[in-house]
Computed example of a mutant assay.
Amino acid sequence: MSEKRWVTFDCFGTLVDWRHGIATGIELVAPGKGRELLDVYNRHEPRVQREHPSMRYGDVLTEALRRTAAEAEIDLLEDDARVLTAGIPFWPVFPEVRQALRELREAGWNLALLTNCDRVIIGETQRRLQVRFDAVVTAEDSGAYKPAHHHFEYFEESLGVTRDRWVHVAQSYFHDMVPAGELDITRVWINRLDVSGAPSIAHAVRPDLSDLAATVAEVHRKRNG
């Protein structure tokens, strides 16, 4: 088993502003509708992922946007349906993220991404993060989308990680906190949207990644005595 200490992250929503990216993409093909249709899109994407666990994320984005447009009675050109995939390399990183990642590296933590996207998309996104990650697990690698357990199990088994040396950090209660809790992985919930949910599901709750290195050190220390 590896003696390294790991912090794993969800990417979109935690490190990268997923809501801004989706809303801006919709706005390009349905002016004035971006924010209005964001929650509609957010209902369709996990359904597509459940129905097609082996579908690449770029195709998930396309199909979820088609369904969103159909529900809203918006006509999309065929090329329009790919607008979200085309825009991902330009989705913004949250302002405190790069510094938080650097501080974790300086404190001796290895960093990994457990992301519901494919290898091409995460490769394009990593250039914006500007901090090196030691491992990446995509839905393409694990064969399923979170909240299924596949990402966590694939990471654990492929790298020989033990749960006493692992903290998972994520924004999504549904996609990340719930499955990490089911697997008894130490976890920090980045509740950026101040949504309702049981805070006790996480070992710490933060509004963003500011001072994350201290939070990770504290939950790791408490969990391991």
Score class of each variant (00 low, 15 high):
A217E: 11
F152S: 07
T138Q: 04
E45V: 10
V178Y: 05
N42Q: 14
V7H: 00
R19H: 14
Y173V: 11
A214D: 15
C11I: 15
D79P: 03
E51N: 12
N116K: 06
V29A: 10
G32I: 11
G108N: 08
A70Q: 01
V120L: 12
P199M: 09
L129D: 03
V161W: 02
T215N: 05
E27Q: 15
A170W: 12
A148P: 06
D17M: 13
T14H: 02
E140K: 01
E124W: 08
R35Y: 05
I122L: 06
L193D: 15
L111I: 11
W109K: 04
P199F: 11
V167T: 00
E45Y: 11
P95V: 12
A81D: 04
H203P: 11
R98F: 00
D59I: 02
D59P: 03
R56A: 14
L183K: 07
L101W: 00
G181D: 03
W189Y: 01
I122K: 00
A64G: 05
Q99Y: 01
V97I: 07
V136N: 01
K222Q: 12
V205R: 02
R102D: 08
T138Y: 02
Q49M: 13
E157P: 07
A70E: 02
G181V: 07
I88R: 07
E140T: 09
R163I: 07
S200C: 06
T24V: 14
W18R: 13
E124M: 15
Y41D: 05
V219H: 02
E45P: 00
H168R: 09
C117R: 05
Y57T: 06
S200D: 09
V167Q: 04
S2T: 15
E96I: 09
R192G: 13
S142F: 04
K4E: 14
W6M: 06
L37K: 04
W189R: 02
V167H: 01
G160M: 04
E71P: 06
V60E: 06
R206M: 14
H150W: 13
H149R: 09
E96S: 00
V7S: 03
A180L: 13
T14W: 01
G143N: 10
L28W: 10
R5G: 04
E3L: 12
A202E: 04
A204W: 10
T115N: 06
Y154W: 15
E157W: 07
I185A: 05
D176T: 11
V29L: 06
E96A: 00
M55V: 11
D164M: 10
S196T: 10
P179C: 10
G32L: 07
Q171N: 10
D10H: 09
R223V: 15
D10P: 03
R192F: 05
H52G: 11
A148V: 03
V219M: 14
V205D: 05
T85I: 02
P179I: 07
V131H: 07
F174R: 15
A23Q: 15
L65P: 00
